[in-house]
Write a protein that binds this DNA or RNA. Structure first.
Lengths: 199, 199
DNA sequence: GATATCATACCAACCGGTCGGTTTTCTTTA
DNA sequence: TAAAGAAAACCGACCGGTTGGTATGATATC
């Protein structure tokens, strides 16, 4: 295999192994040795590709949140009205929760670490702000197209963001405790009601 | 001092020291030795009173969440209408966030550990359900007194719970990023609007 | 003197990270 | 085109330090 390909392949293997391990056992509890074992790679290779364990973690944050952003923007690409779009997004909640549980557990990990480490905090924050902006844009669009009443987009976006985060955290803690898809839809409807334009 | 008193005193000292240390540096990063040092107690004393480090952590969860529940029920004790009560609670958001940051960071810690350990999960869950029930009761009360429209209390409670959790998580991650007191109030108003009885 | 409470010294396991050296791929040169 | 040297990629033993936990003895209370 060509050098560059080989390099990228092991890099990716390490990253994938780390994602698994971190999600299962947590950042602190996961040793570099374990990641290497899972990836089928020596410690030397690990430290050849990543400067420290934390650097790897930061890379992981970036990759994963970018993925999430892309998934979000995809939902945005159909051409119905804003309220319908928001409802459609809430419908996907259950899917994401069940199919991506390990990754979501990783977000918890990010969050916890971020509250104690400045570098991680900034990394998570920048992505989080992008999420917020996404909701704000969505609401502005709704106001412009006349399907939403002229509320403050920043405030509305905040509500959606909080609601979504809160639901995710709960769903993560208690996956079988409720039908989170329905809960998400019901909750979204309630919030949407206060923003919908009334004739 | 009598044996029993002395024993309870050191037990409490260890617990308090652990709460501090865990909140500041996290569960994994805090060593037993550090807890002992803070408590002014030897390792022997530590392991005489607590079987393992994790057992101490579980005790801490219980104590702390009970405290939180009690604080919540106190807010409930004044006698205005439900919407006013909810708004008043949102007003206290900033206070709690600034004055209790370390403890809130601990909740993050609980949460993360809970998603991986069954025992912790159950402990956190039971307290969290009590939290949810609190909101449900509040909404039922509002519907009964006629200040809220007859929505499904479970759904409404869910919205408030998610909103609150989401706001806390954000405030914890980015304490100076916004005036979280105002954000909380604004968000609460929006959600309340969709539940308020309209004449 | 018996028992509960604590102190000290200690250990095996593990941790993140380093380092000298080996293998594989790429580049140069003749 | 093939040998040879350079560079990239990787290996695994090893290190200093730390960790949760223990074994044993001291001291205060009963």
């Amino acid at each position: 295999m060509a050098n560059q390909q080989r390099s990228e392949a092991t890099r990716a293997r390490i990253l994938a192994a780390a994602a698994e391990a971190f999600a299962e056992r947590g950042y602190d509890a996961t040793g570099v040795a374990e990641i290497c074992e899972r990836a089928g790679v020596s410690k030397g290779a690990f430290y050849y590709h990543y400067q420290t364990k934390q650097a790897l973690f930061l890379t992981l944050i970036d990759v994963w949140l970018q993925e999430l952003n892309r998934a979000l923007e995809q939902t945005d690409s159909d051409n119905s009205t804003v309220p319908d779009r928001v409802l459609a997004m809430s419908g996907k909640f259950q899917d994401i929760l069940t199919s991506r549980t390990p990754q979501l557990a990783l977000i918890m990990e990010f969050w916890t670490q971020a509250s104690r480490d400045e570098g991680m905090r900034q990394a998570v924050l920048s992505h989080y702000r992008a999420f917020q902006q996404f909701f704000v844009d969505l609401i502005e669009l709704g106001v412009a197209e006349g399907t939403l009443s002229p509320i403050d987009p920043a405030a509305g976006g905040q509500v959606f963001l909080s609601l979504t985060s809160g639901l995710f955290f709960q769903g993560l803690l208690d996956p079988t405790g409720a039908d989170w898809g329905k809960v998400a839809e019901r909750s979204t409807r309630i919030v949407l009601d206060s923003m919908r334009r009334r004739e």
